[in-house]
């Protein structure tokens, strides 16, 4: 059995009166890729954004049940949200570079976390851009605006930005949904590389993508976790009929 990084038990999420996640139970393992699939509005993004508490800002949102990271309750009052988010990085669906230079985008996380050593920041920016497979395309123009990059490059920049602060877990919310096939292939390749160092949770609409890149797959529907298993099993021999129907594209 693999080592558990995040343990979710009886987890419920509410937007006001609406129960968006119902009694979710699953384990997320170290250095594995968990793919979350399901139709729109099934709660997969809500689940993802619970892990680094990005839902905190939504008025009327509340949770119950437990979600533990390294045995610590993510929703406990003792949890330092800033510290949690340093540990759990996030890449958003729509690439969201800051209107700053490429260098400053990647250095941002280091700076807000109190890193001042210039040599270290420079080294870390280079390393992160290399890890995000972007270095060769931008090494001679680090000072230009991030907005000058193409869509695919911007998304890899956002990945580099997340990597720079050395998170342990990387959350990705449909990171390739706005990219063309070539850029998507690059990001997928990258994820295969990244799982050597990080635990990755990725939400995706694209079935083939989930099959290609994830080790485990969780199928969500209407706020419930329908099935959770090794990706190979889910895609070749799902236990539930509804999972099979979804995967084979009979509804979406």
């Amino acid at each position: 059995m693999h080592q558990t990084k995040i343990e979710v038990r009886d987890f419920n999420f509410f937007y006001g009166d609406q129960r968006a996640l119902k009694d979710i139970e699953l384990d997320i393992y170290n250095n594995k890729v968990l793919g979350i699939i399901g139709p729109s509005g099934c709660g997969k993004s809500t689940f993802l954004r619970s892990i680094n508490r990005m839902n905190d800002t939504i008025a009327g949102a509340r949770v119950n049940g437990t979600m533990l990271i390294d045995g610590q309750n993510i929703f406990s009052e003792k949890m330092d949200v800033v510290e949690l988010r340093r540990k759990v990085g996030m890449v958003f669906q729509k690439s969201n570079p800051f209107p700053k230079s490429i260098f400053d985008n990647v250095a941002y996380g280091l700076r807000v976390n109190g890193r001042k050593d210039k040599a270290y920041i420079e080294h870390k920016v280079e390393e992160s851009l290399k890890d995000a497979a972007l270095w060769e395309e931008v090494e001679d123009r680090l000072s230009v605006s991030a907005f000058d990059l193409s869509g695919g490059q911007q998304q890899r920049l956002c990945i580099a930005r997340a990597l720079a602060i050395e998170p342990e877990v990387l959350l990705m919310d449909e990171p390739a949904s706005a990219l063309d096939p070539t850029a998507t292939a690059k990001v997928e390749e990258l994820i295969q590389e990244l799982k050597k160092k990080y635990t990755i949770v990725i939400v995706t609409h694209n079935m083939q993508q989930a099959a290609r890149i994830s080790d485990y797959t969780a199928f969500f529907m209407l706020g419930e976790l329908i099935e959770y298993n090794e990706t190979q099993k889910i895609f070749t021999n799902p236990e539930k009929k509804i999972t099979e129907e979804y995967i084979t594209g009979r509804f979406g």
Partner: peptide
């Protein structure tokens, strides 16, 4: 100011 500037920063551990 786009919300993504704020969320992006928060997700990187900014206060």
């Amino acid at each position: 100011v786009p919300q993504s500037y704020r969320n992006g920063a928060l997700a990187l551990g900014a206060t």
